[in-house]
């Protein structure tokens, strides 16, 4: 691991001031410390923001939204009574990510800002456009079985591994940020970016910007759930996951619909085409299959991950069928 300075900020403003070029914010460290040990991340300074006073979950009265501090630990988010009742999709997504130990350490802000990655990115003996622009992407010719099928580029086919972010993208979360230029709000989806020709940039955040809170609007009426398919039953990244909310009226017509996919793209992928295909239609497996097909028409699978298109289609249909048969 490269040498670095360590500084613990007392408030957000001090953290931003300490985050000079070459510095990185440290939350729970579950991704950053690992990447530093691998030699992938080499910050000159760590600014510890894990003890900043962004550690509360504030819920509006019944029927309202919620505000989640960026330093809230993943386990506390998933265990919160209001999150469990009002945003079951989010609680389930968080519980399906990492292990009990990792969820105790990982912060909400850090979960969003974990690196979009693949095994080649984590291996400094291999070329990687995300680490060194122009070096090439060995995953495109090599092992990309678990990598992106949608929105990727010739430069990068990595996926964003967060489960929580998939639920937040479906729930229209708003990410509150402070930085050298002041405060701003970044909508989800919209925080993460597709790789294009600049795969080194995972998000739209500028250097020195710090997430302080996640704001959740009141959930639309309907049932919601998060389903994740992986290679083993627990503590593994998604091959494909689906966060879905479905609100169906008494005539069986879809009135509210939010769908996002994990494991398929460089970003948590909001399935806007599928939503558009479902709204106003009669709920049922045929409509769900048509919606899934509308979304997955965008898919450009690689030679060894075409299975994910079928998997995503079947998972969307199964998840929506679970919510409203």
């Amino acid at each position: 691991m490269r040498e670095f300075e360590y500084a613990r900020a007392r408030d957000g403003r001090e953290a931003v001031a300490l985050c000079e070029p070459g510095a990185r914010y440290l939350g729970g460290g579950t991704n950053l410390v690992d990447l530093m040990r691998l030699g992938v991340e080499t910050p000159a300074r760590l600014v510890d923001v894990s003890r900043l006073p962004y550690d509360r979950i504030e819920a509006a009265p019944s029927g309202g939204g919620a505000r989640i501090g960026a330093a809230v630990r993943n386990s506390d988010l998933a265990a919160h009574p209001v999150i469990r009742r009002r945003y079951p999709m989010l609680a389930r997504a968080v519980l399906s990510g990492g292990s009990g130990q990792v969820r105790n350490m990982a912060t909400v802000g850090g979960n969003l800002l974990q690196r979009t990655r693949c095994p080649y990115f984590q291996d400094v003996s291999k070329p990687c456009n995300k680490r060194h622009p122009g070096d090439g992407c060995p995953a495109i010719e090599g092992d990309h079985r678990n990598l992106a099928i949608i929105g990727h580029s010739d430069a990068c086919v990595a996926t964003h591994p967060s489960d929580m972010a998939v639920a937040l993208a479906a729930l229209d979360a708003r990410v509150h940020v402070i930085g050298p230029g002041g405060e701003r709000v970044v909508p989800m989806p919209g925080l993460h970016r597709l790789p294009g020709a600049e795969p080194g940039r995972d998000t739209v955040l500028e250097p020195g910007e710090l997430i302080t809170a996640i704001e959740l609007p009141a959930p639309p009426p309907g049932r919601s759930v998060y389903r994740k398919v992986r290679e083993r039953a627990s503590f593994a990244f998604a091959l494909v996951s689906v966060a879905a909310l479905l609100g169906v009226d008494s005539a069986g017509v879809v009135r509210h619909c939010k769908i996002a996919l994990g494991g398929v793209a460089h970003v948590p992928w909001r399935a806007a085409r599928a939503e558009g295909a479902l709204l106003g239609r009669t709920a049922g497996p045929d409509a769900y299959a048509a919606a899934a097909d509308a979304e997955l028409a965008l898919a450009r699978p690689l030679p060894r991950n075409a299975y994910k298109v079928t998997l995503a289609r079947n998972l969307i249909v199964a998840t929506l069928t679970e919510l409203a048969p």
Binding site: L26, D34, G100, N104
Partner: peptide, 17 residues
């Protein structure tokens, strides 16, 4: 760590002050 289970390999000692 403060009563909660955690992976000691991923925690920087300096952050446990």
């Amino acid at each position: 760590i403060d009563g909660r289970r955690a992976n000691a390999c991923l925690a920087l000692a300096v952050a446990c002050d």
